[in-house]
C-alpha cells in the first residue's frame, strides 16, 4: 500500500484508574491510510472501545493514555489542547458510537442535532443552509429528508443508525470511527448499513475504522484489519492475508467462531473466557486458551514478527525465530 498515511498510533497504552486499575490497551501500534477501511476485531472486553476513545480523545475521566503517541493529519494529536481537539473533532475525525441507538437526544429533532454539529464548527453558516445540508445528508444515507423534523423515538433502529452515520459525515471528516455500528441491529438491516458505509466511503473517500467482534463481517468489508486480544493487538494485516493466511491461533479461532452476516457457519468457538484485564496472564496473554500452546508461551511475552512485505504482523511464539528453528509448532 502506497497511500498517504492519515493516522499513526505508536505504542499506545491506556489505563482506567480504579481501584482496581485496568490497563485496557497495551502498546498498540498501527496506522490508517487515507481512504481505507480499517477493521478492528476482538471479543467483547478486549479494549476496542477504549482504543477508539483514546483515538477520538473521548476517554472517560478515569481513563488516561499512559504511553505512546498518535500522529493525526500531521499533528501530535495527544498533545493538542482541549479547545484544539474540540475544533478538530468532527471536522477531521468523527464517531459513530457503539450505542448509536441511544446517541440521539430524545427531546430535540434529528435535524436540530445535525444542524448543531454544523453550526458548532461553521458558525457563519446561514440557518437555512444548515437545514438544507441536514436534509441532503439524510438523503445521502437513504433516509427520507422529511425526517429532519422527526424525533429519535419515531425512527427504527436502522434509521437511527443511518442518521448517526449522516451526522458523522456532516462536516466531511477525513476519518470516521465506527464502534460496532451494527451490533444492535438485525441481520438484514446490518447488511444494508454495511453496504451503505462501503459505498459512501468509495464515493467520498474518507477513511473508516470499523470496530466489531464479528470477524467474518470484517473480512468482507475491511481493507486491512487488526485483531485485539486482552488489550493487545495480536495480529494485523490485509484482508487477503488474513482471509487465507491468518497467523495467530486466536485470529483463526475468531474466523471459525462467528456466524456471518453473509453466510451461515456453525459456531466452533474459542474455549474458555477472556482473561482478567486487571492481572493479565504472564507470557502470551492467550496461552491459557491456545490450542497450539508451546511451553515458552507460559512464561515469555511474544515479540511482534513481520510476516510479509505488506506489513502482516503477528505477536505469537509460533513465529518466533527459535520456535521456527525447533519446528516445534508442527
Amino acid at each position: 500500500m502506497s497511500q498517504e498515511e492519515l493516522l499513526k498510533v505508536e505504542g499506545l497504552s491506556v489505563t482506567y484508574y480504579g481501584p482496581p486499575d485496568v490497563e485496557a490497551v497495551h502498546h498498540a501500534s498501527f496506522d490508517i491510510k487515507r481512504g481505507e477501511i480499517f477493521g478492528l476485531a476482538g471479543e467483547s472486553g478486549c479494549g476496542k472501545t477504549t482504543l477508539i476513545a483514546a483515538l477520538t480523545r473521548l476517554l472517560p475521566d478515569n481513563g488516561a493514555v499512559t504511553a505512546g503517541s498518535i500522529a493525526f493529519a500531521g499533528a501530535d494529536w495527544l498533545h493538542m489542547t482541549p479547545p484544539e481537539v474540540d475544533a478538530w473533532r468532527w471536522q477531521k475525525i468523527s464517531l459513530v458510537s457503539q450505542s448509536a441507538m441511544n446517541s440521539l437526544n430524545p427531546v430535540i429533532s434529528v435535524g436540530d442535532q445535525i444542524v448543531d454539529a454544523i453550526l458548532a464548527h461553521r458558525p457563519n453558516t446561514p440557518k437555512r443552509e444548515a437545514w438544507e445540508r441536514a436534509e441532503a445528508l439524510l438523503r445521502m444515507v437513504e433516509v427520507d429528508p422529511k425526517h429532519v423534523h422527526s424525533f429519535a423515538h419515531e425512527l427504527s433502529g436502522g434509521m437511527r443508525q443511518r442518521v448517526m452515520i449522516a451526522m458523522a459525515l456532516a462536516l466531511e471528516p477525513d476519518l470516521v470511527v465506527m464502534d460496532e455500528p451494527t451490533t444492535a441491529l438485525d441481520v438484514v438491516v446490518q447488511a444494508q448499513i454495511i453496504h451503505q458505509v462501503r459505498s459512501l466511503q468509495e464515493r467520498l473517500g474518507f477513511s473508516v475504522i470499523f470496530v466489531t467482534h464479528d470477524m467474518s463481517l470484517l473480512l468482507s468489508i475491511a481493507d486491512r484489519m487488526a485483531i485485539m486480544y486482552a488489550g493487545e493487538i495480536v495480529e494485523l494485516g490485509s484482508r487477503e492475508r488474513l482471509n487465507r493466511h491468518a497467523a495467530h491461533p486466536y485470529t483463526r479461532g475468531l474466523i471459525d467462531s462467528f456466524p456471518s452476516v453473509f453466510e451461515k457457519k456453525s459456531r466452533v468457538g474459542i474455549p474458555g473466557a477472556p482473561p482478567s484485564m486487571v492481572t493479565p496472564p504472564p507470557g502470551c496473554r492467550f496461552h491459557l486458551r491456545c490450542p497450539e500452546r508451546l511451553s515458552v508461551c507460559d512464561v515469555a511475552v511474544p515479540e511482534e514478527r513481520v510476516l510479509d512485505s505488506g506489513g502482516h504482523r503477528v505477536r505469537c511464539h509460533l513465529y518466533s525465530v527459535d520456535a521456527l528453528r525447533q519446528g516445534s509448532h508442527d
Binding site: A87, R89, W90, N102, A117, A120, M167
Partner: peptide, 10 residues
C-alpha cells in the same frame, strides 16, 4: 450516550 455525542460534536 447522547451527551457524549454532543460533546464529541464540539
Amino acid at each position: 450516550d447522547y451527551i457524549l455525542m454532543a460533546r464529541a460534536k464540539g
